[in-house]
Design a binder for these strands. Structure first.
Lengths: 243, 243
DNA sequence: AGCGTAGATATTGTTCAACAATCCTGCAAG
DNA sequence: CTTGCAGGATTGTTGAACAATATCTACGCT
């Protein structure tokens, strides 16, 4: 596979400082200690899991006791999630789980198509290890499908796209994608049958990955574009069937 | 020019409800009565004006007295600006005006190129009035240039691009663009000579607008792409000259 | 009955004061 | 020169209180 991944020049004595960069990457794990962010994590999971149906209000009074935090901290968590698109804030009325519509589906997919396809199209050959996260996600979705855990398939699918975008090395693009996918997950919960929604894309993810491994970026981009169009159409159809 | 822009069907009696949408657009002005947002407005102007150099810390204690608001409200405004990219938050240390680097320039322009060019390329013929905001911005930049007010030229330039993106009718894209332009404005202030930075694009904006009026969207997109590449190169050059 | 309005109630918006947790500074010891 | 440890300053978090606003309810009017 890789021709030079095994070769590591042994550090003579204390002159090798390359490990510093790796450690610096984990620095965020230490600073992640904020009450508001922990509360936001809990609520984020609840919302993306679908435990809170769209339209439900998150009362400050109730959540304050349930989560054992101050009202201010809770409101700060609300604000975090609001800017992620997972909550909407109505003045003097409170925060609610947003009720997304078909307009939002079109809006979200339009952005996803443009951004993800451009990422793939602009790829250049780099170290093969960079595709490892994608491989892991594909395998995760495949094994989840065998067990019939379709929401796990959906999660692996999300991570695949997040990692795909990550190949562009753009912090802002990563952030934007995170928000888009979070909103998309919100939409998935109005669909009762996740199997029909996620199953078709397990194989297409693997096909996409293989094209990337072969360096056929233009073809991969074209395929991804059609992939997204189909996914959008399926979601819209499911939407009209229930709404 | 426009074949049907003058034609306006007269409202018979009370059946015309088109004004409702216009009024709805101003609704935000009424609901904008949040202290935190007002504080954020003040700080946003200060930052985008360049009054606060990158790296300076915004002390809670000092600003609380200067703005006559509670510490909580101030922190809320901080959060708002943080999510706009105009402030960075360091745990237990405070908020700072971010110090953007050449990496950020490349990152920002990559996203702008992809998004704005796609917007233009995907345009379809619609009511000519929709280009009115763009015409206003072009004229504003031209008249500001005559007076030599180059920061006003820069502002009009920003609004031109914001309105350009607005043609796509995507709330999420509008939001993303707002943040990208805000960060960009942050970068402009490290440049001492705004004339060299903004002057070349007054004419290019008008040329772009004329292409849009003629419906030549593909050519406009190509031109915009080169436009952005030049702008990025100029900003990077200015950056290296000072940094 | 239908409608609009005024007041009661509940929730959110904002402020304040206090304490806890953390970072920065300076200095002393090895 | 580096390490370890007070001291001071700043931020993080809490709780309570009051103000402002939306929702609900009841009343009076046509």
């Amino acid at each position: 596979m890789s021709s030079f991944s095994e070769i590591r020049p042994p550090a003579e004595h204390g002159t090798d400082t390359s490990w510093l960069r790796e450690v610096a990457g984990d620095a965020a794990l230490f600073e992640r200690s904020s009450s508001a962010e922990r509360v936001a994590d809990v609520l984020r999971r609840r919302i993306t899991e679908g435990a809170l149906p769209p339209g439900t209000q998150l009362s400050e009074e109730l959540l304050k006791e349930a989560l054992q935090v101050s009202r201010n901290t809770l409101r700060e968590a609300f604000r975090l999630l609001t800017h992620e698109g997972l909550l909407v804030h109505k003045m003097h009325r409170g925060v609610f789980v947003p009720e997304l519509t078909e307009v939002d589906v079109v809006d979200l997919y339009r952005l996803r198509r443009v951004l993800e396809c451009d990422v793939v199209r602009s790829l250049v050959d780099s170290h093969p290890d960079r595709l490892d996260p994608l491989r892991g996600d594909v395998e995760a979705s495949e094994s989840a499908a065998l067990v019939g855990d379709w929401i796990a398939v959906g999660t692996a699918n999300m991570r695949f796209h997040q990692h795909l975008v990550g190949l562009a090395d753009s912090t802002r693009l990563d952030e934007i994608t995170g928000r888009l996918l979070a909103e998309l997950r919100l939409l998935f919960h109005v669909i009762a049958t996740p199997q029909a929604l996620h199953e078709p894309y397990i194989g297409r993810n693997r096909a996409l990955l293989e094209l990337l491994e072969e360096g056929q970026y233009q073809r991969a981009a074209d395929q991804l574009n059609q992939y997204m169009l189909d996914s959008e159409a399926g979601l819209l159809a499911a939407f009209r069937g229930r709404g």
